[in-house]
């Protein structure tokens, strides 16, 4: 085999094509909005089909954003821009982002956060993490989700709980989610968790570093994701 071909940086090729796909998807979403504008749904069936189209396109979009973010994180192109943020603002923005999805799935989301709670973190990166986990939970959850935040000894803790089947055992055991290879072999690379883990690690304060925890001890009966930001 030709050596040059082997030396092509595949992750770069992937990242570039992801970028193109994202642009195409943007056009697709625009056109979809246009179609919906010109041909408003005539009945419930129509409305449902539109909702599915919109939801799936949005999901591909968030998946692509995540891929691109992971690539950038891996290539040192992203830095956490840490500043003081109002936690409730960041959480409610992600709730708003997923309003349609939650409605379509008839899920109730409870937001529990002190209005005056502030924290030091990159609101875009952390917002992206919460969005990914929410979208994921929405798929497994039955009726209810709780998104909450509080100050703990280990820093600000953002928690997402659901009433689904909980996280599988292999995920609970994983100490980090950086080992793509191992996870690829088991079928699912858990990109969302890899991303969450990387973002957590980017948040440092003095000797403390951020981390994530997965458990199945939610009072709702399902999985529980925790993001700690020192």
């Amino acid at each position: 085999m030709n050596r040059d071909v082997q030396e092509v940086d595949f992750s770069f090729v992937l990242a570039s094509s992801v970028h193109d796909m994202k642009n195409s998807l943007g056009m697709l979403l625009n056109t979809l909005a246009e179609v919906m504008q010109q041909y408003p749904p005539q009945n419930n069936e129509h409305a449902k089909s539109y909702a599915v189209l919109e939801y799936e396109a949005a999901r591909i979009n968030s998946e692509l954003i995540q891929l691109l973010s992971l690539y950038r994180l891996d290539h040192d192109q992203v830095r956490a821009d840490i500043d003081e943020c109002m936690v409730v603002d960041v959480l409610s923005e992600q709730v708003a982002r997923n309003h349609g999805l939650l409605q379509a799935r008839q899920l109730e989301l409870v937001l529990q956060c002190d209005e005056s709670l502030s924290g030091y973190f990159d609101s875009d990166l952390v917002g992206g993490v919460i969005n990914n986990i929410l979208v994921n939970c929405a798929r497994y959850s039955r009726h209810k989700l709780i998104l909450s935040a509080q100050q703990t000894a280990e820093g600000l803790c953002i928690t997402i709980e659901d009433d689904g089947p909980g996280y599988p055992q292999d995920m609970l055991n994983a100490s980090t989610f950086a080992e793509t290879r191992a996870n690829f072999s088991s079928g699912r690379p858990h990109l969302g968790l890899m991303f969450a883990n990387k973002v957590a690690l980017m948040h440092c304060n003095k000797a403390q570093q951020g981390f994530i925890r997965l458990t199945n001890d939610s009072p709702l009966g399902g999985g529980c994701f925790r993001l700690y930001l020192p």
């Binding site: 979403l29 979009n61 409610s92 708003a96 309003h99």
Partner: peptide
Amino acid sequence: LTKPITGQILGQRLER
């Protein structure tokens, strides 16, 4: 604001 934008996101942000 990052696209896609929903009415909720926009409303929330503007109000703030």
